[in-house]
Design a binder for these strands. Structure first.
Lengths: 172, 172
DNA sequence: CAAATACTTTACTTTTTCGTATACATTCTG
DNA sequence: CAGAATGTATACGAAAAAGTAAAGTATTTG
């Protein structure tokens, strides 16, 4: 449950592209220099982002990369899933249960339900943060994150699930 | 940001130990068989958990492993940190910024503040879930998780608004 | 058309993580 | 004490992730 290099650098590349004016683009070399990464590494990152439909490329003399949509419609959830997939692969149990075919915890797999909750929590936050929310100074970003966090929590707790008491105070 | 094998299996071993009566213990072979893991692998997992102070061992003929505390006082946060460390290592910027010494985003590192929020969110949840909360059938577990989720969110949103200069100037 | 520039694709090397094997130390049983 | 069962510690090999390198394709410019 660590942030991988792909996620860290891939997101930063997206931010670089989000900071240029609409219609503008950046070359691999420009991104690499700005982020202090190797050209070869940025090349690989951009390929992954392109396969995820997040960026568009133009070849040739005046080529480069640009976001495939405005930064205000791209969520961090989409970016992170392109770069690293979901936090918890539902097939994990089947694949990693050792030499038994079915999950040894199949009856009551508390662990799986835990991962599910965490995945939903993180995913809920990430899918509500737009790339444009991360472009700006750090103070404003935190404020924006806070707003989205509230929205996420609102939805998670607002579901008609077994709840012992009423909603918590949101604007504490 | 994926769940690692160490986390998955280590947590399951802890659950096995949490299910036996107080004063009882399990051998490496017993845990391995119950979880469908190799004996060698469980051996390693238990060593890590032991270094983290989460389990106690007894050597010799009637030896085995047991929780070092009641399952009701051990939080998942402690378990996960022992097994894999924090989600986002604060030194990440310094170590992985490529060939530049200081973080290229030092001025306004939105990315770091994002990881900080996610880390706090996940950590907040994990530190409020006790090992005993995961012992039982899946329905009850979800209910328990939900309660802790509410508590976490309550605290996160109850904090005063983020200060604009709350994060140290990095590297730095 | 030819050269320069930039993206595309594939393969390779390095590093880290994961899993296993082996030799050793400790403790109980008889 | 001898032997068997158990944890301890270290080292080794396989697998995955991360990063690099090189040859190929497309487009613009002169």
């Amino acid at each position: 449950m660590k942030v991988s290099a792909l996620e860290e650098y891939g997101l930063r590349c997206m931010l670089r592209l989000g900071r240029v004016s609409e219609g503008e683009s950046l070359t691999i070399h420009e991104i690499a220099e700005q982020e202090g990464l190797s050209v070869a590494n940025v090349r690989k990152l951009m390929m992954i982002l392109r396969e995820g439909g997040l960026v568009q490329s133009v070849r040739g003399r005046l080529g480069g990369y640009a976001l495939s949509e405005p930064a205000s419609t791209i969520t961090l959830g989409r970016i992170m899933e392109s770069l690293a997939g979901r936090m918890y692969d539902p097939e994990f149990c089947g694949k990693h249960s050792g030499d038994v075919t079915i999950c040894v915890n199949s009856g009551a797999c508390s662990v799986r339900s835990l991962w599910g909750v965490l995945d939903g929590l993180v995913g809920g936050v990430l899918h509500r943060i737009r790339l444009s929310d991360l472009i700006g100074d750090e103070g404003k970003v935190s404020f924006s994150l806070r707003k989205h966090l509230e929205a996420t929590i609102d939805q998670l707790l607002g579901q008609p699930a077994p709840r012992p008491h009423s909603l918590p105070v949101i604007n504490g």
